[in-house]
Design a protein around this nucleic acid. Structure first.
Lengths: 223, 223
DNA sequence: ATCGTAGAATCGTTCAACAATCCAACGATC
DNA sequence: GATCGTTGGATTGTTGAACGATTCTACGAT
C-alpha cells in the first residue's frame, strides 16, 4: 500500500507549473534568489523554457506559500520579511505551538517521538559542528510540536510559516548560530514534557519564542 | 487617514482575476455553486466574459482559500468537506482559539471588545429569531478570539478556516440552528473571561468544539 | 532642485491553436 | 452477462503572439 501511495504522489506531480514552482521554491529557500529580488516574467520564463502564462501560475502557487509577493502591474518579488513580519510570525507560532503542546497528554507514542527524536538528532549534529543540520533538526522539532494538534491543515500552514521564517534568517548573517543557541532549551522542554509537566514546558517554549523573536528582530532592524 | 486607506484599497482592487475570484467566492459561500459542482472553464469564462487564462488565475486564488479543489486534467470543483475534513478543521480551531485565549490577560480593551460585542449582538438577533445574523455574529465572536493572538497571518488563515466551515454547513440541513444552540455557551465563556478565569473559559471553549464537531460530523456522515 | 513629460520596459489580458488527458459509449472477448 | 480494450468527443494543459495599461527611467523645462 505504501508503494501505491508513492506511485500516486509521482503521478500527481505532472503539472508543469507545479514543477516550475518547486524549482523556484528551492532557489528561494537556498538563497540563490535573494529576498527583495524581482522575478521578471520574461527572463525567468525564457531561462526555464516555459510560457508566461504557465510561469504566472507557478508564481501564484508560490505567492500562496508567501515566498513571493505580488504587486499589481509591478511584478513578483522574493519576499523580504521585515521586523513587523517576524513579530507577526512569532505571535502566530506562540499560539499554535503552545496550543498544540496542550495535546501532549492525549497523543500516542508516535506523535511524541516526532517531538523527542529531532532534539537528539540536533544534539548529535551539534557535537559535530554541523550547524546546517542542527537547523534542519530544529525545524523538525517544531514541526513535531505542531503535529501534536493532529490537524493536517494546521501542519501545512505551519510549514509555510517555517519557510517564511527561513526567508527571514536569510536576511541576517550567520543564521545557523541562532539555532544552536537554543538547543539546550529544546532539550529542557522535552524533559519537562516527559516528566508530565506540560505547563512548565509551555512556559519554556514561550520563553524560547520571546528570545528568538527579539534576537531576530534586532538583527533585522539594525540593517 | 481613513479615507486615504479606503482609496488605496479601491485602487488595489484593479485585477480582473481578483474581481472574478471575489464574485465566485460569494456564489460559493451563499450556496449558489453547490459543493461538489465542477466549474467548467469554458462555461464560467464565457458567462463572465473573461478569458480562460484569467479565469484559471481566479481559480488558483480560490483554491488557495480552500473553497475550490483542483484535480489535474479534470478541472476545479467546489470543495465538499467530509467528516475527516471537519475533524481536521476543529482540531486546528481547538489549538488556535484555545491558544489565543491565553492572551486575554495581556491584551487591551479594543481586542477584548471584539470578543464581547459579537456575543451581545448574537443575543439581540436571537431574540428576533434572525438566525442568519446570529450565525454571522457567532463567526465574529470566534474571529475576535483569534484576534487575541495579535497575528495578522493567523487571523487570515482562520478566516479561511471559517469559510471552509461554512462550506461544510452548506451540506447539512438547517445550518443556523447549530449556531443558535451554542449561544448561551458563548455567553458563559465571555463571563468567565471577564471574571478573570481564563482556564475555565478555555475549558468551556473546548467543550463547545467537542459538541459542535461531533454534531456536524454526525450530520455529514449520515448522508 | 523640482516638476512634468516622452519613451522604453514590463505587466495584464485576450485570443487562437494544439498536445495531453479524461470520460463515456461502443464492441470484443471470455 | 460482466469485464476488458478501443475509439471518439470533450475538456484541460500549455504555448505563442498580440495589444492596451501601467510603471519606470531619463531627459529637459521651469
Amino acid at each position: 500500500m505504501s508503494a501505491l501511495a508513492q506511485g500516486r504522489a509521482d503521478l500527481e506531480r505532472a503539472s508543469t507549473a507545479q514543477k516550475v514552482a518547486d524549482m523556484l521554491r528551492e532557489r528561494v529557500l537556498d538563497g540563490e534568489l535573494a529576498p527583495g529580488l524581482r522575478l521578471s516574467e520574461e527572463a525567468i520564463g525564457g531561462a526555464l523554457g516555459v510560457s508566461r502564462n504557465t510561469l504566472r501560475e507557478a508564481f501564484r502557487l508560490l505567492t500562496r506559500d508567501r515566498l513571493l509577493v505580488h504587486e499589481h502591474s509591478r511584478g513578483v518579488f522574493v519576499r523580504r520579511p521585515g521586523g513587523e513580519d517576524v513579530r507577526d510570525l512569532y505571535a502566530a507560532r506562540r499560539v499554535i505551538e503552545c496550543g498544540a503542546l496542550q495535546n501532549w497528554p492525549a497523543v500516542g507514542d508516535d506523535r511524541r517521538a516526532a517531538v523527542r527524536t529531532p532534539v537528539e538528532e540536533a544534539s548529535a549534529h551539534g557535537a559535530r559542528r554541523d550547524w546546517a543540520k542542527v537547523g534542519a533538526a530544529n525545524i523538525r522539532f517544531h514541526r513535531g510540536i505542531v503535529g501534536l494538534a493532529g490537524s493536517h491543515r494546521l501542519s501545512e500552514e505551519s510549514d509555510r510559516l517555517f519557510a517564511e521564517l527561513m526567508l527571514a534568517f536569510r536576511v541576517v548573517s550567520d543564521p545557523e548560530r541562532l539555532h544552536m543557541a537554543y538547543l539546550p532549551l529544546n532539550r529542557e522542554i522535552v524533559e519537562l514534557l516527559s516528566s508530565g509537566d506540560v505547563d512548565g514546558a509551555t512556559t519554556r517554549l514561550r520563553e524560547y519564542f520571546d528570545l528568538a523573536e527579539s534576537d531576530l528582530v534586532a538583527q533585522l532592524e539594525q540593517r
